[in-house]
Each structure stands twice: as C-alpha cells, then as structure tokens.
Design a protein around this nucleic acid. Structure first.
Length: 691
RNA sequence: AGCGGGGUGGGGUAGCCAGGUUAACCCGCUGGGCUCAUAACCCAGAGAUCGGUCGUUCAAAUCGACCCCCCGCUACCA
C-alpha cells in the first residue's frame, strides 16, 4: 500500500478518530538523566503506564516503550564536574533510573536508552535516508567557542553582562533580569560557565533539517488529528502560523551520536533530532529481542495501530512537529502520532520543581518514604490536566488517608473480615437478591464502564475518581443493608449482602489495577484468584466470584500516613541528608566566610525536658566562652565531652533553642545512626582557626 | 515585550471547546445515624452573586470585548 506522502487525504483517513482497537503503542517522554527524575518528570511515564495497563487488561496488543535520554551538553558538563566520562555517568544513571521505574511499577516493555547501539545505528541510517531525500542542507554560522574547554558553547553556557540592562549574569540566550532575548555574541565580557574563560566567535558549518518543507503536511496532520488535546493543537498551530525555520541538527560536541553526513565526522546529532526517533528504535529493539524482528512494523505502519505519546507540555513541538517531520521525510509512510497526551506542570508547594534549589520531591527519595502505589494514586488524582497543579504534603496525606485507606481500604477490609468471621471465609450462596442488591451490582458495572470511558479519553484524574467511587457504593451499600444485624435474624439476607459486597471488591481489584497495580495484585491474591497474568482481565470486573469460593484472611492494604505536613517535609529532609548529596561547588571565598575554629568543651550539661540536647560551654581562647546547644545527647554523655577539643562554627548567626541561646555550632559527622564529633589529632590552642 | 494557560464555597479540583433543570466531587466544618470495619463508614446541613466590567442571547461559570491579578513559555528542566 503506497500512497503519495504529500496526499493530505491519507491523513484524513488515518486520523478520523474511529480507529479500531487492537494494537496500541504507548510511548512516554524519555527522561533526561543528568540526574534522578523528580515527581513531575514521572508524570508522563506514570500516565502512560496507567493507559498501557488498561489496554492490556482489555486484551489489546500493547507495546510500551521509553528510555533514557543520555546525550548533550548538560550531561557532558555534569560528567566533567564529577570527573568521570559521560558514558560512565549515563551507565550509572540509566541503571538507577531503570530500577526506580520498575519499582514504581511502570510496566515498560522496553526501557532502553539513546546509548543503545541499535538506536545509534537506526538514527544514523534514518538521517542518511532523509539526507538523500533532500531535506538536509548545510550553512555556516558564527558560534561562541571556548578555547580553554576546547568546545563550542550552547547559548546557555555563555554568561556575561547584558548589553541592555547591564545585568552581570545574563545567559547567552536570555537575560534573566530584563527578559530580553540575547545572542551570545552580543554579551559584554562573555565567559564560559564551565571554566570561566572568554569565548571566541568561530565560523562553523552545520547541517540543517529543512522543516519549512513540511509545513503543509504538518498543518494537515494537526488539523485532521481530532483527538489531539487543545493545548498540543493550539501550540502547534501557532508555531506553524509563525512559520517553521530550518533547524540545525548537528552539534560540535563529542558526546552524542556521530553525524552520518559526509564532512560532519567531528559532529554529533542534536538530541531532539535523535531521541524522538528512539520511540521507533525502542520498538524495533523490543521485537528483535523477542525474536520477531518484523513485528515492529505493525505498530509503525499499519493504519489501525494507535500510537500514544505521553509528554509534558514543554515537549509539544518535538512530538507534534519535529517527530512527524522526521518520519515524513523518509517517504516511507510511517504512522504519525495518533495522539499526544500532554500534561501541564506539577508544582511543589506552590513553587516550580528546581534541582538547584532542591524544591520538590525526587523519585528515589519518595520511595524511601512511602510505597509506590501511594505516590501513583496521589499523582494521578492531582494530575495536571487542564492547568498546573500543586503537590503539597497536605494533598498527599488527604489522598492516602482519606481515599486509599479510609474509603477504599476500609470497604475491602470490612467485607473480608465479615466473610472471614461469619462465613468461614467462603463466598456465601445468594438467594433471591432484592432490588437494592441488583441495583447496587448494576451501579458497580456502570462505574466499571465509566472508568473505561474515562481512561480511553485519557481523563486519568476523572478515571481515578470513578474507580474510587465504586468503594463509596460499597460502603453505602453495607451501611444500608446492615449485615451485622441481619446475620442474627435473617442469615440469608446477610449472605446475599456479603455475596454482593465481595463482587464489588472483585470489581475494584480489576479497576484499581491501572492506578495502583501493587495493591491490585495483592488484593487479587487475597481474593484467592489464581491468574497471575493480567492480560484480558478487565472483563473479569463484571464476572461474579462463584459461591463456595474460598478467600483469604483480611489483611490491611494501606496504612495511614502519620504525622503533619511539617513532619513529612522533615522526613524527606532526613532521607535526603542520609544519601551523599551532590552539593554544588563553592569558591574558596565562599568557604572563607565560614569561621571554623577549635574550641574546648569546658562544661557539658543536659537540658531538662529535652531528649537530645546538651548545653555546652566552649572555650574559644581569645574569643571567649561561648554557649552551644547541641543535639548530641543521644550519642554522648556530658562527662564524655568535657575537656574535649572539637571543631566549631564560630560565626553562625545565634539561635535560641528551647529558650537557651546557642552562639556556636559544633561539628559532627553523621553516618546513619552513628554520630561522631570532629576533633583535632594533636593539641592546639582553643580559638585556633581551621582553614 | 509577545504568546499561551489560568483565576469556581475555607483548602484542593471538575465543569467551559458542543450555552439551558437546584454549579459537581474530595478535604474541612455543623448536626445526626451506625457499630461489621484500620476512631473507619453512611446520611443531612451550612458555605460560591463561578476575578471585575460591559456585551451577545429567551438563557452564560460556559460565547465576545476590555480591565485586574497569578503562572508558564519564547525550541534540549515532564
């Protein structure tokens, strides 16, 4: 089947919207792994996972792919900072991230990486192909080059004084103070942010992808793709109306995929022109590994395949314009993204997630606090669908305690307990169900369908609400039927009630699966339903558990989050401090602002009513006697400390702790539960400066 | 600056694109019920002139114009 690629009608056919189900490619944005992702970065992967799991439950043929985005200057710079080769950095991070995603239950069929040999080879062949098709040309430009680092500098890596407002730390692309767009060549006193040297301007040749040639086809694609969400469509149309520009696809960096063009041997391919091709290469790799090397085509060429891309809003143009253009440029008739499901941003307590300022929660530390399902449920239920939303500890506590534990967990638990206790753990035989029983079962079936409808519309937040609603129905039903009464007077009625209740539990076990898969499997097991493979299980939501079936003993599925919002933030900070933090470097000048000295503890005494505090009097020689309130009482007895020479920070702003003034801070090393004060290894006078 | 998104009871969100019965849901609050269940559950109630103004319309949270505030983006932080 070969249609002219320029024929717009094929798009109309392909994107009419009533595409038959069956084959679903689910793709999630590739996290950039210069660092562990934070909760916001997890959103596209998590959303994709919910949908992938749903389609699998429905019995569709699903392939779910993503991978680590590993190339580019930020990773190179991070590697330099740590004194290792970029490859070593990404090998390490890829492993960490893959492992974490698995622990979040992100059910990827292939989580690969841009360093995968198959990907690199695929990308080179792809670009050569579109080069031969005439979509790539070369052009010379002037770019800043750092002679000391021996590299061309991306705009963001040049800083200098803004020529408009005089701001001293304007970046090459934009001034943070006046907001003006800049050109790195215009900066006054420019310097390289990596080494500080002054960059020079060099003329270089680069290879450009001729985006404007695809304007018409992309316009047709965007306009005829009915399911594209508004934010993705509007933004893409705007860019198309403004006019596409040729994009440089080569970079003068070493860390990347070598450009395959003649004369470009020392260049690499720009990240966004290779990582999006990873969706294809990951599919190829997956089927190759399964020994079915041709089947990837079913997902990328058969018209009936649905391809779903889950991304954050900042990635829209790469998925609605650049990826389609790259695919069109092959003239091979690739499926263009059937839908690009875009989430807005997640904020943390009203602020943007920020790695440098440590605002937010990172996915490794989150798992050290609470189970994956708690995070999954919370994130999906506040998933930023129509606007940015805010993650707060308050929300987290509310979602886990009220929704998961009280409403959902408790309904399941009371049903189990009742059957355990009054029916010997055996599903009772129903006889003559009354109207309320039937209506309830119907309402539950209705809800199951509603969850499915919401999921198919990618309204994940609403879908989660609907599945939780099933447990509300259950709770309401039990309250109305009061089986704890009828068990005494009309045991058959109680039997009917619990029969219905356990069917609701089963429906929940199925519908909760996309959202909280770990809990779903645990529940499936408690229901003593043997099937380990969940493919095609969705239909089970409406099939009753037969009377006589034995279930297991009740076991709580969730635990409440104990403690306040402040308490949780403290827990997070504890978790954070016990792993080696990658603290940003400081200059010697910055360090010298800290006045470190040796002091002698002349007196140490416990503070009444405090658990861990000691009041210390510390002799600082010429600087006098200072009082320190130190949190060491759980590690040292007062008499152990008296007489010791120890390191202190002498110029910390004083603070009042439990009504006592603390003027200096003593230094101690912490290794998990072990605390050790820092002492000089030979005798020096109290007050000696530590440098 | 331009562009985009948003401002809905105390808090958090949905509804808006395809205008139409008492503006929905969760948390919180008040009162009541229940006691099988992880002090959980269920019911009822209070509480919003849907940022402001003007307009379109028989009818606007929903459409249009203008204004005020918040946020994001302006092509390598989802």
């Amino acid at each position: 089947m070969h249609l002219s690629i320029c024929d717009a009608s094929i798009f109309i056919l392909r994107f009419r919207g009533c595409v038959a189900l069956g084959k679903v490619l689910v793709a999630a944005a590739w996290p950039y792994i210069n660092y562990v992702p934070h909760l916001g970065t997890l959103l596209p992967l998590l959303s994709a996972d919910v949908v992938a799991r749903y389609y699998r439950l429905k019995g569709d043929d699903v392939v779910f792919v993503s991978g680590s985005d590993e190339h580019g200057t930020p990773i190179e710079v991070e590697a330099i900072r740590r004194g290792i080769h970029p490859k070593e950095l990404v090998d390490r991070n890829h492993k960490i991230v893959s492992d974490l995603l698995e622990r979040y239950g992100i059910s990827l069929d292939n989580y690969t990486r841009t360093e995968s040999p198959l990907h690199k080879e695929f990308v080179r062949r792809h670009h050569l192909k579109i080069y031969k098709n005439g979509y790539i040309f070369t052009k010379e430009t002037e770019l800043p080059y750092c002679p000391k680092c021996n590299r061309f500098l991306p705009d963001r890596f040049v800083e200098g004084t803004c020529p408009y407002c005089g701001y001293g730390e304007a970046r090459g692309d934009q001034c943070d103070r006046c907001g003006r767009l800049l050109d790195p060549t215009k900066l006054v006193n420019p310097h390289c942010t990596i080494c500080g040297a002054e960059p020079v301007i060099r003329r270089v040749k680069h290879w450009y992808f001729d985006m404007p040639k695809f304007t018409g086809q992309l316009l047709d694609y965007i306009k005829s793709n009915k399911q594209l969400p508004d934010n993705a469509r509007n933004f893409s149309l705007k860019l198309l109306q403004e006019g596409l520009k040729p994009r440089p696809i080569t970079r003068d960096t070493k860390w990347g995929i070598p450009a395959p063009f003649e004369g470009a041997e020392d260049k690499t391919i720009y990240g966004w022109f290779e990582n999006v091709l990873g969706y294809v290469s990951a599919t190829i790799e997956y089927f190759k590994r399964r020994g079915e090397p041709e089947r990837w085509r079913e997902f990328w060429f058969h018209r009936e395949a649905k391809t779903l891309f889950f991304i954050g809003k900042d990635n829209i143009p790469f998925h609605t314009l650049i990826l389609p253009a790259l695919l069109l440029a092959t003239h091979e008739g690739y499926n263009l993204p059937w839908n690009v499901i875009t989430n807005e941003f997640l904020m943390f307590q009203g602020q943007k997630f920020s790695k440098s300022r440590r605002v937010g929660v990172w996915i490794d530390e989150a798992l050290r606090l609470y189970p994956a399902d708690y995070w999954r449920y919370t994130l999906i239920s506040i998933r930023p669908e129509t606007r940015d939303t805010n993650f707060t500890w308050k929300v987290f506590i509310e979602k886990v305690n009220s929704d998961l534990n009280d409403t959902l967990g408790n309904f399941i638990h009371r049903t189990f307990k009742f059957i355990n206790r009054y029916f010997g753990s055996v599903v009772p035989e129903p006889k003559n169900l009354d109207e309320v029983d039937e209506a309830t079962l119907n309402a539950v079936r209705e809800k199951v369908d509603e969850v499915a409808r919401r999921l198919e519309a990618f309204r994940l937040q609403a879908a989660a609400r609907e599945f939780l609603e099933i447990s509300h129905i259950g709770n309401r039903y039990l309250n109305e039927k009061k089986p704890w009464r009828s068990i005494k007077e009309k045991p058959q009625e109680a039997a009917n009630t619990l029969y219905v209740a356990v069917q609701i539990v089963k429906a929940l076990a199925v519908t909760m699966h996309p959202f909280i898969p770990f809990t779903a499997e645990k529940l499936w097991n408690l229901l003593n339903l043997p099937d380990k493979n969940y493919k095609g299980r969705w239909a089970e939501a409406k099939k009753p558990i037969p009377p006589g079936h034995r279930i297991k003993r009740a076991e709580p599925l969730f635990k409440k989050v104990e403690g306040s919002e402040e308490g949780l933030q403290r827990m997070l900070e504890n978790v954070r401090s016990t792993k080696a933090p990658a603290t940003p470097t400081i200059t010697i000048e910055e360090f010298s602002r800290v006045d470190l000295r040796i002091g002698r503890i002349v007196k140490a005494e416990p503070i009444p009513k405090s658990r861990n505090l000691l009041k210390l009097m510390i002799d600082l020689g010429d600087y006098g006697l200072k009082q320190a309130i130190a949190g060491v009482a759980e590690h040292y007895k007062p008499e152990d400390l008296e007489g010791k020479l120890i390191a202190v920070v002498a110029n910390l702003a004083p603070k009042t702790i439990m009504g006592l003034r603390s003027e200096v801070m003593i230094l101690a090393a912490q290794d998990g539960r072990v605390l050790a004060v820092i002492q000089p290894d030979r005798r020096v006078e109290p007050g000696s400066r530590i440098t």
